[in-house]
């Protein structure tokens, strides 16, 4: 049992989309931008050529925040969305009725409809495709060229993620909503 989280050294991100490709391959995601369990957001640069503000342009890799207090879980009428033993918010497709309420509830737009099962799906930290086989990395993390992603057990004080979170400053997305996300953006 663990409590998995991911720290993102997002300033190193080059928007190469290796993570997105790896996730699609590993987890069998339909192609199409709408089927996105992982993405890299681009903040459009400000200014007028040639006076562009470099600082204003950034790449923000993201995915399900694995909220400790997940609105998507709270609103699910059939408990199809649940917390697994590792604190990962997951979806049981057999139980999902496709009411898409979770899509309304998620503040991060982290859920999408899988057209093959016609249920709602999301990032699950590769729980069923990697962690279950004893892997200790997620597909998106392993493949990243600039090593943006640090995945690990937040409950283990010796894990790298715990250390990084102790040593470095970070922010979380839309924290004010009380979702208690487990994705940490290192600053």
């Amino acid at each position: 049992m663990a409590r998995y989280g991911m720290a993102l050294d997002y300033k190193n991100c080059i928007n190469c989309k290796a993570c997105e490709s790896a996730c699609k391959e590993q987890n069998g995601i339909l192609l199409g931008a709408d089927y996105h369990r992982i993405w890299v957001g681009v903040r459009e640069i400000e200014g007028i050529f040639p006076n562009l503000s470099i600082g204003s342009s950034s790449f923000e890799p993201s995915q399900c925040q694995q909220c400790d207090n997940a609105p998507c879980q709270e609103v699910c009428p059939t408990n199809a969305t649940y917390y697994d033993g590792n604190g990962v918010v997951r979806v049981n497709p057999d139980q999902c009725i496709l009411c898409t309420y979770c899509m309304q509830a998620c503040p991060y737009d982290a859920r999408y409809v899988d057209d093959r099962t016609t249920t709602v799906d999301k990032c699950n930290f590769c729980s069923d495709t990697r962690l279950i086989q004893g892997e200790t990395t997620t597909a998106c993390q392993a493949t990243c060229p600039t090593k943006v992603r640090i995945f690990g057990d937040l409950d283990d004080p010796d894990s790298e993620i715990s250390k990084v979170l102790r040593d470095r400053e970070y922010r979380k997305l839309k924290e004010h909503l009380g979702t208690r996300p487990k994705l940490f953006y290192l600053t």
Binding site: E74, P77, T78, N79, C96, L98, Y101
Partner: peptide, 20 residues
């Protein structure tokens, strides 16, 4: 998407925190 499944799991695994 799955109205029949809804009837079943509304009863089997009720989501008591869900307004729906």
């Amino acid at each position: 998407g799955h109205p029949v499944r809804m009837v079943i799991y509304n009863v089997l695994t009720p989501g008591l925190t869900s307004a729906i």
